[in-house]
Structure formats: C-alpha cells, structure tokens
C-alpha cells in the first residue's frame, strides 16, 4: 500500500529573531511523528529560497519592517492554502514594533536611524553615515503585523510559542481537528 501524500509546509522569518524557528525544534522527538504527515518545502530549515509548487501550510515568523518582508509575505499568501502567523512579532509586531511608539515626530524614521547610527550615546560608527547600500531593503514607516498586510488564517501566540502549542496546532490542523487553543496554552511571553 502506498503512503498517503504528505502536506507541504513552507516557513519564513521576517522581522523576527529566529526564536520561533528554534521553537519549532522544541517539538523534539515529536518532529519525527510530524514528518510522517508533512514535508518541508521553502524554508530556512531546508535553505530552499523560492516556491517550487503550492504549499498547504505557510508559517510566518516576525512582522513586516521593510519592503522585502512585505514581498515575501505576499509571496507566501499567494502560494499557501493556509497561512499561520507564529509568535508575537508576526501577530502584533513584537519587539521591532517598539519603534512605532516613538514615531510621532515630523521625520520619525530619520530620527530613529540617526539615534541608532550617529547620535546615540554608545555609538562607534567611524563613517558617521546611516547605512544606505542599494542591496539593503528599504525600511517601512512603521512595523506592521502580518494581519495588517495579508489575510492570516491562524495565529499561534507566544514569545516564543512552546513546542507543545506548535505541535498541538499543526497536528490538529493537519487532521482537520483544530477548534482553537486551550486557555492554559495561550501565553504572550
């Protein structure tokens, strides 16, 4: 008897710290159980950089802080049947969104970058320039949550989410039994 086709999963890290991808590894030996149900397509884990075919589930870590993040996120929405925002940064901007609260001046982005690269108290930047290499993606005016850019189907909370909540959500989604999170599983830290 041939094995049933496995679901294809793609993942990406946008404005995040890769902690949520590390949290995927926190599923430990349950990863072996999961690989019976899924194969991993485009992902930093496989180093595949673009979609070769449509994926069943896309998992996004991090929000959008630059134009490249938006491009990748839209690419995922186009190529994935179900899109999951994994962790607080993807859900509400997280740590990078701290810059949004200081963005109330006339030239907020300039002020932010000048403090980060030129005028900040502990900066040692011998060039006295804000990096502007053409290869660097342009920063957005603010950090946006994934759901502000594209339609998101499920959000898994946590910073980083526990291996338990990731395994529980994925395994129940794959078998069509997902009915929301248990109250004891919701954590924002």
């Amino acid at each position: 008897m041939s094995e049933p086709p496995r679901a294809r999963i793609a993942t990406a890290s946008l404005a995040g710290c890769f902690g949520c991808h590390m949290a995927i590894l926190d599923m430990d030996e349950r990863l072996i159980e999961l690989t019976k149900l899924v194969e991993i397509d485009r992902s930093p884990l496989t180093d595949i950089k673009s979609f070769t075919r449509r994926a069943d589930i896309g998992i996004i870590e991090g929000g959008c802080c630059n134009e490249e993040n938006v491009h990748v996120l839209r690419d995922f929405r186009r190529n994935c049947d179900v899109l999951i925002a994994l962790g607080q940064c993807a859900i509400m901007g997280g740590l990078p969104a701290m810059r949004n609260a200081i963005m109330h001046s006339d030239e907020p982005l300039r002020e932010c970058l000048e403090e980060a690269f030129i005028s900040g108290r502990n900066i040692r930047n011998t060039t006295h320039n804000i990096p502007n290499d053409p290869a660097l993606p342009l920063l957005l005016d603010e950090v946006y949550a994934c759901s502000e850019v594209v339609e998101i189907d499920y959000q898994i909370p946590g910073c980083a989410p526990s291996g338990d909540i990731i395994f529980d959500t994925l395994s129940r989604l794959l078998t069509g039994r997902f009915r929301g999170f248990g109250r004891d599983m919701i954590k924002f830290d």
Binding site: A85, I91, M92, A145, S147, Q155, P157, G180, F181, R183, I186, K187, F188
Partner: peptide, 10 residues
C-alpha cells in the same frame, strides 16, 4: 486576556 481567549489583539 488568557482567560477571555484573546489570542491576538488585531
């Protein structure tokens, strides 16, 4: 928020 099943304020 946990008790009231709020997974994300959006």
């Amino acid at each position: 928020a946990y008790r009231l099943d709020m997974t994300a304020p959006t």
